[in-house]
Structures are given as structure tokens and as C-alpha cells.
Simulated assay, not measured.
Amino acid sequence: MSRTEYATAAHYEYDKQLARAAIEAYFSTGPGLDHVRGSILTEVELECERDGIFLHGYADNVVRTDDGLQIIDYKPSVRYELSTSDRAKEKLREHLAGEDYHPRIVKSAIQVATYIEGIQNTSVYEPGMEVVFTYYGLLANTDLEKSTAGVRPRVSGYGRDVEETYYSEEETIWGLIQRAHDGIRENNFEPIQWDAIRENACDRCDYRSMCTDALAEEVQF
């Protein structure tokens, strides 16, 4: 990043140190060396199709393992990504049923579906291979280390394998994809959980100043 994109030199220097600490942790105590040595594809476009729905995305890294393939998507943190917990699976079902609103986890689940199905359409996949999908948070844990030399960031990463959730909730996830696909094709963008969206997203929306719903709330009679 350029220094001009930061408000102060201190912010720029901190981010620079944070990035360096993350890379060092990834290769010293993390899985970085294994990810590099086993890597067979990077920034690869993966495509899949089901019931007339075509999806594609770009996977950060694909690693060959003893049992098959590991798809790795690198994130600063994995806090909001799909997990294997029973609660995560329940959230997917709630979203599909219109009982609650969980856009972040749904977005993550669609990405997992695209990559797991997409890798099977590449030349590196062989029938019977185990496919693992890993979210790896490079900045999963951050802290400040203080010494007489000053203060510097201390970082450790964390990986989360989530393919089990995809396989156990495959029908739910593709139901979510189908509904989104149909809504786009039919120009039907009315959100089911509008109140939840308004509560959680509207205050941070860049288009608030031109939104008729937002402007209507500000009109005083």
C-alpha cells in the first residue's frame, strides 16, 4: 500500500509491521512452508454448474495432500466465515427458511460450494480424491509486544477446515444459491429480512444519501 492512502505515518507503519509479522508467523510457526511446497495452483479460476446455475471464483491456493487436494482461501480473520459448528449449520437453514438473516455466513457457504465443486472440474482432480476447504486467517490473533526497543505487533494465524459443513448442508446451500439466482433472473431483489438489514447495514451504507427509504426517515413533518 502507498503511504498516501493512510491518514498518518503511524497508521502506515503499524500496518506495515502487522503485515510483516503475519508473513513471518505464517512461515515460522504456521503452515506456510507446507502450503508453498505442496502448491499446485494459485489464483486459479474455478467453475461449476448445477441445474443451469453457473458459478465461478478464484481460489488463492490449491495444495496437493496425501489424500487429495486442499483449497485454501486466505483472510485477515476467519471470524465471520463458515464453520463446522451446529449453530453455523442452523443459521444456513434459518436464512433459507426466512426465519433469520445471516448474509456473511451465506456468502461464505456459496464460496465454499463454488470452490469444492469447481476443483472437481480441473485437471488436477482425480475421482475419489479427498477435497478439503480451508479458511486461513493470517491475522487471526494480534497483540502488541512491548520492550525497551519500542512496541511491535505480535501475530499468529489460524486455519479452519469447513468442507464437512458443505457436505452435510449441501442441499441447504444449493437452495440458497437457487433462490439468489432466481431472484436475480426475475429482478426480484426485495429482501426477506429487511428490518435486520436496516438495523445492521444501513448506517454504514455508502448509498444512504440517495436511498429513498433512508431519506424518507429523515423527513420531518
Rank of each mutant, 00 (worst) to 15 (best):
Y6W: 14
Y6R: 06
A9C: 05
Y14A: 01
D15T: 04
A22H: 07
A22P: 02
E24N: 05
A25E: 00
S28F: 05
D34T: 05
H35L: 04
C48V: 09
F54V: 12
G57W: 05
I72S: 04
S85T: 15
D86Q: 07
R87C: 01
K91R: 12
E94M: 13
G98F: 10
E99K: 08
E99G: 06
E99N: 08
D100I: 08
H102Q: 02
H102E: 02
H102L: 03
T114V: 03
T114R: 09
G118R: 07
Q120S: 13
Q120L: 12
N121R: 15
T122D: 04
P127S: 02
M129D: 11
V131F: 09
V131K: 06
Y136N: 05
A140K: 07
T142V: 10
T142P: 06
L144Y: 03
R154M: 11
S156Q: 15
R160E: 06
Y167V: 00
E170Q: 08
T172V: 12
T172A: 04
I173Q: 04
Q178T: 08
H181C: 04
D182E: 15
G183Y: 05
N187V: 08
F189S: 12
Q193N: 14
D195V: 11
A196S: 15
A196E: 14
A196V: 08
R198N: 13
A201D: 15
C202T: 10
D206P: 15
M210W: 09
M210F: 12
A214E: 13
E218I: 00
